[in-house]
């Protein structure tokens, strides 16, 4: 009987370890989402809106999933360095300048990027900040 219980506990703990390993990325995603949201509220929301709806022609919405997908490697650069060229979002051209946010560390950029690309109807999944750091080194 005792042996049975010990075996049971052993098997159970192995299963728990496997499940938690599989969910590490899930946990990271949740972390990034919650920290990213805080950064979004503090730095982005005033122009891009609570639901990523943008502001007139002054600030584009963040709901154009196609744009986000096509510019995946460029998003981190835009978040950190701002943008000073016209972009087309949902078929509409936006010409206003976006300010830079040099105070954001790579991890902050990664978290807010993951938040944006997985909110407002977007679903692009997790990007690790190591990868985002690489994107940031290759900014134009």
């Amino acid at each position: 009987m005792r042996k049975y219980i010990i075996n049971f506990i052993f098997v159970l703990s192995v299963i728990v370890i496997i499940i938690s390993c599989q969910n590490q990325q899930q946990i990271d995603l949740q972390n990034y989402m919650s920290n990213g949201k805080d950064i979004y509220v503090a730095k982005c929301q005033n122009c891009h809106g609570e639901a990523g709806e943008g502001l007139g022609e002054l600030a584009p919405p963040l709901t154009d999933s196609t744009f986000l997908k096509n510019n995946k490697t460029r998003l981190a650069c835009i978040i950190k360095n701002g943008l000073n060229e016209p972009i087309t979002i949902h078929g509409k051209v936006y010409k206003e300048k976006m300010p830079a946010f040099p105070e954001l560390a790579d991890i902050d950029v990664a978290q807010v990027m993951v938040f944006i690309t997985n909110s407002f109807g977007n679903k692009q999944g997790f990007v690790h900040y190591n990868e985002v750091s690489k994107h940031l080194q290759n900014c134009k």
Partner: peptide, 13 residues
Amino acid sequence: CTTICPTMHRNLM
């Protein structure tokens, strides 16, 4: 202004 004005005018709108 990139800080409070967009929010102010979004709301005033």
